[in-house]
Nucleic acid binder design. Structure first.
Lengths: 194, 194
DNA sequence: AAATGATATGCAAAATGTTGCATATAGAAA
DNA sequence: TTTCTATATGCAACATTTTGCATATCATTT
């Protein structure tokens, strides 16, 4: 269900195409909800059928038409209702295979896992840069924002805080993995004892 | 795919029933991977078909039989292989509807959202107590743990750090929502001006 | 005595999400 | 000139997850 409302939320202020929506899921919305373009196009058709969104075609030279979607009053009402609906409260459902792999830490896997963890660390770092940039540019003085933008800011803040915490965890984990690898019998990286 | 390996990981040290597995997903494993009992039973059948787990029935008076599952050498090998497999690196996929609802912050929704946020805060607090208890009891001196337990510890630490960060975010968000609600025209909670 | 909650397992349908493919053009880079 | 990237949309098959139901017993609570 939530994808449907995420799309409508993205349409609150702008008229967007499926492609635009996919982009916007890549950036701002995508921190809390991910969706592929296939899912988005399918859901847009669904929303059109319900008349919760309307669309108009925009001709373009050469390229396929752009279908621009916007929220109808009916869709807007459905969104407003959903916001106030019973909250299922799934507490921070972090579904990440990596933790399962960590449960399987062994001499065979330690180097691989440390490597993958380092990759995650730098990917998160990059994402954080993006979010901090957005924060500085658009949310510099949060207390002065209009109400709805305050909500968006809080979501962004959630992403930023979570990202920073993740970096801190990566650092602790990498340090622990490094020292554990050193203590391993037959560790081939004892170059300093030569 | 990951559920399959999560189950096998849970079976690494103990022989467990479907019910036990569902319990263990509720607690330790469930911080990073959630699964309902229906999913677990289905996956256990699947794993049996592949002969990656074996099972034996345990009679009980009155109650239905308990089917106890354990990892076969073949399953163990498949798990080991999976751990070293190409990592898809889905960076912390936080799928939480609540953030979408926050994007829809309005005078109509602010009280409801503040209430739901407070509920999340206390649920997370409770979960944190549980994890801190486990940490103190079983992972008091992480550097002395055997290698595999270090991995489990790191996952637990990830959960704890994430939980603490979430609490901090909740506090910031609640404060902001409270001050925004006060500034609302027609705020009926101006009891102090009577 | 009846209701609830924990133990213990499972089917079926619906909703959601992923993966692979397919089409088409413009502009930039190699 | 070919290849790559971005724009722009979509189908079909498959995998996964969720929701609702169903069964059965024991122990505790109302």
């Amino acid at each position: 269900m939530a994808l449907r409302y995420a799309i409508m939320t993205a349409l609150l202020e702008d008229e967007l195409s499926g492609y635009d929506l996919a982009r916007s899921f890549d950036i701002s919305l995508g921190f809390f909800w991910q969706a592929s373009h296939q899912q988005i196009y399918r859901e847009l058709r669904n929303l059109s059928d319900r008349t919760w969104v309307s669309h108009r075609a925009e001709q373009q030279k050469g390229r396929p038409e752009r279908h621009l979607y916007s929220l109808t009053p009916k869709g807007r009402a459905a969104l407003d209702e959903w916001v106030l609906e019973n909250d299922r409260m799934r507490l921070q459902e972090t579904k990440d295979e990596f933790y399962i792999k960590l449960y399987n830490l062994s001499p065979d896997s330690i180097d691989y896992l440390a490597d993958r963890l380092a990759a995650r660390r730098s990917a998160m770092m990059e994402r954080l840069y993006l979010y901090e940039r957005i924060r500085r540019r658009h949310y510099d003085n949060p207390s002065k924002l209009p109400l709805r933008r305050k909500g968006v800011y809080l979501a962004l803040l959630g992403g930023i805080m979570q990202g920073k915490q993740y970096l801190a965890w990566c650092d602790e984990a990498l340090a622990m993995l490094a020292s554990a690898a050193e203590e391993l019998p037959g560790s081939s990286s004892d170059a300093d004892t030569a």
